[in-house]
Design a protein around this nucleic acid. Structure first.
Lengths: 346, 346
DNA sequence: TTTAGCACTCTCGCACTGAGAGTGCTAAAT
DNA sequence: ATTTAGCACTCTCAGTGCGAGAGTGCTAAA
């Protein structure tokens, strides 16, 4: 399909770049003038016609300049853009910020969302790291007053879940600690199924606890298990394409509704390898809700240990170079941090 | 100041109600026609002039109907609106939803945000419950691989904080458990200052741990300590006053930026008693960012145990009756749940 | 194959206009 | 002393017409 002449590729790239910069349709004369091309506007017009026929460009109306189609953006991102990297100083600044806050996952996530939003000038999204395969590490049962027991469950990888357990009658802290000790010995390193299989041998209290444990572990295996961190929602509103409120609402709903997000993440990101950046342009024919948006996402973390997803959402006319390099860099950084945290060399 | 005649109060109330319903300026003739008043439009015009002079109404332009001023809304909310309650079936539905999800604070919060957003048709905000005065309940130290130790801290009231502790050299799980045991015995029920005071008597490992414990406890005493749950952001965008994107951005930023929220919550909600619903109309002259918005907030929980804040944000032309009764009901419900969780009768 | 020239099309901003809505004032009615 | 009818007045809003300008596609020459 890539039967474009070199000149056509150049023109397509320039149209995309210029349109991203200016928000305006790009005319043939403008291209000659601002990019010092030594071909005439008529030649460009001919190529533009060809590009329009091939579906990479379109005209908002008869006598406006050209604007990239979704196909055009895709071609640009995949074939023309090339790899870009964040400047070294920017990378250092970001890395510094992360290392400064120590080993606090919650604050990493917040910072990641903030950095993404800021550097990509878009709305950002980060999911907390968690393992696809939850394994038991440690359990704690703490007596609050009365029949309520606070259960704290730590998974391998450090993910924590808490839950309240309501008992039929009060139980002493000693009894609870004994139960926790026993379960800690029995369940070490097991997955939910393994834990379920040894339930029958136990007393009622232990069984009740294990039921919640399994429930929590199952829940933590879901894609959107943990918290979802967002930032920069106000950024997208300043983009001119969201002047139409309906468009803006659709974009916001994607980020807001867990069910939409879940669908999106499940179908795209989970199929890709960690490290690769995925670019979804204009919903790719599948997601009506983001017809006017683009999504740049990546997985981070260490497969088998813990992984998460992060990305930015912006208008189709997004600065892809900037967004992609930011997403790639932050994903890499978080991966390092996660690996560093879990599989310490020592 | 309440030197309004009964008829003027009626007219003010009708103007506010009608404007909230229709978004449109309200004319004198319209009032007569739609509310079956047996006074003439000329009479109404006279009263409207008076209300305008007193600052309760204004005209968008010479020959439009009247629109309430911020003062007008305030008078309405404080004097004219009366107390409304959510219909009994709605209350039951909501309560049912809460009791169905068991004792899971995270899911309570999410549900609360969702219910508020849905029933008030506005953006909602809920902060997790936490105690103003953090007290030590339980500490757990868990060896991950190598020199990193996962510290799980449980406060009285059930609030949980986790943190990663990086040691100079590896320490065995036995040593960690011993340290945790000792600290659990020493620190039970203490506040941060109390813990700090016994730091000097301990070994290095214990001191390092306590330093983090105190840090975490201090952090959990801040107003916006825990997670902030939001929902219904897309709702506010559908309001006609947010057709202007700049207005919408300002509203979003309030909800998004922790610093703005912190300021807002610190200055208003913390001064009010639990149970009371606060209504902030048009920034009340203090908050430039929410000049075009209103905020309906309440504290929930049990003072001394754990409290949180919840509320909804909408345009000034908000359905106050509905919002206030929703906020009040949900705050009451969450208070019951929190009390039920902590100070069990048993 | 590229380029100059040109007619053509469409948008956009501007001014103008008439209809309609709602007012404030005055004078009469209750 | 209020309330009401009548009416002139003001301002918005939607629609229309028009000229300028931008950018095209086509044709014919280079």
């Amino acid at each position: 399909m890539s039967n474009l002449t070199e000149r056509q590729k150049l023109i397509l790239a320039l149209v995309v770049r210029d349109h991203i910069d200016t928000t305006q349709p790009v005319g043939s004369a403008r291209l000659v003038k601002y990019y010092n091309l030594d071909i005439s506007s008529a030649t460009i017009r001919n190529d533009m016609m060809a590009l329009t026929e091939m579906g990479y460009l379109r005209q908002p109306h008869t006598s406006a300049g050209r604007v990239p189609t979704e196909e055009g953006y895709r071609y640009f991102v995949r074939q023309l853009m090339g790899q870009t990297e964040l400047p070294i100083e920017t990378r250092q600044t970001i890395a510094h910020q992360f290392y400064q806050i120590g080993h606090n996952v919650d604050r990493w996530m917040r910072l990641a969302a903030s950095v993404l939003a800021h550097h990509a000038q878009a709305a950002s999204l980060v999911t907390a790291p968690h393992s696809e395969q939850a394994r038991f590490k440690h359990l704690e049962l703490i007596n609050t007053r009365g029949r309520h027991v606070l259960m704290v469950l730590v998974m391998e990888g450090g993910e924590i879940r808490q839950q309240m357990l309501s008992l039929a009658e009060p139980v002493s802290q000693e009894r609870l600690s004994a139960a926790a000790d026993q379960l800690n010995r029995l369940c070490d390193g097991l997955d939910p199924d393994g834990i379920l299989s040894l339930k029958s041998q136990l007393e009622e209290l232990e069984q009740d606890v294990l039921k919640l444990v399994v429930e929590d572990m199952r829940r933590s295996q879901q894609i959107l298990a943990g918290e979802v961190y967002r930032d920069g929602l106000a950024n997208v509103l300043s983009e001119p394409e969201f002047a139409d409120v309906e468009t803006a609402r659709k974009a916001l709903r994607i980020l807001e509704e867990r069910s939409l997000l879940e669908d999106l993440l499940a179908r795209t990101v989970m199929t890709s390898t960690v490290g690769g950046v995925q670019v979804l342009i204009g919903g790719e024919g599948t997601w009506e809700e983001l017809r006017d948006c683009s999504f740049v996402l990546a997985r981070y973390g260490a497969p088998g240990l813990a992984t998460g997803t992060l990305g930015v959402l912006g208008p189709i006319r997004m600065a892809y170079g900037q967004s992609i390099s930011t997403v790639r860099y932050v994903a890499g950084l978080l991966s390092d941090l996660v690996v560093d945290l879990h599989a310490d060399a020592q």
